[in-house]
Amino acid sequence: MPADAASRTPPTPDRALGAVPSAGLRLPSWLVTLTMLLPTYAWLTLAILLPLGAMLSFSFMTATPLGKKEVAFTFKHYRAFIDQPYLIGVAWTSLLIGLWTTFLCAVVGFFTALALARATAGRLRETLLILVILPFWTNGLVRVFSWTMVIREGGFLDLLARSVWPDAPSLGFLYSLPAIILGLVHGYLPYMVLTCYIALVTIDDSILEAAESLGARKWTVLWRIIVPMAAPGLISGSVLIFVPVIGAFMEPRILGGPRGVTLGTVIEEQFTQAFNWPLGAALSFTILALVLGIFATFSGVLRRSSSL
């Protein structure tokens, strides 16, 4: 649209904000474009790109280059998984947390989206969608903290159990892996509901009716038609969840306590307590490589489902 609009009016290259015709001063078009874009991209360069570059160079240094320490080039921090075998266990925990969170979000979120798309309409659907998205806008830290109220010993869960059976043993499971996964599922479920919902509302009723009239059972319709058609939503939802979860550190700290050692918390420690910035940087870039790999693999699916 803008392309042919521009070609229709070629004699006015200065028709842009920034040109000051009343003064007779005409700024060249490219200069106006540059002025509009420069502030944003200069800011992103200063706050995102240069810091990532600095961190990449730090990851190859033998020590944090502050003070008078001699600093040399090294690859040793990228060998950390070999030199410090406990990191393999930590990475495994992080991976487990990431996979379980993504899987549970996919199952729960897919059926929520399906129910929204097939069993609700109009105002009710709008309201329910808003209610699902709303927690997104609230602080993640607050939501994580709220679970400690429920799953701690003597918390709300125990209260419920004891109202049924007064002598019930405590069901509290704060400071465990399931607690971390529960908090993360709670935090990221809305992503999956949204991406699946966007994929599911486009399914034409007549396709499902055709399948049913040809004798397909409910499960066959679900597995052979609905799930494959929702696949882009499931995939982009999974990417959007797995990527931040693999770098999570606040959730494992609060809900995992001493058991919550993940790659995220190890990296955080390198920067705030151990002051081993090069190791922290190398671990960060290992995760970043994984993240970029995931985005590259699924870029096609992500682009298609985001353009909807």
């Binding site: 990527v243 940087a281 995760i287």
Partner: peptide, 12 residues
């Protein structure tokens, strides 16, 4: 992930 952006900003 914000952890990476945040620590990169800290370093830089």
């Amino acid at each position: 992930p914000w952890l990476i952006t945040g620590t990169a900003m800290l370093v830089f």
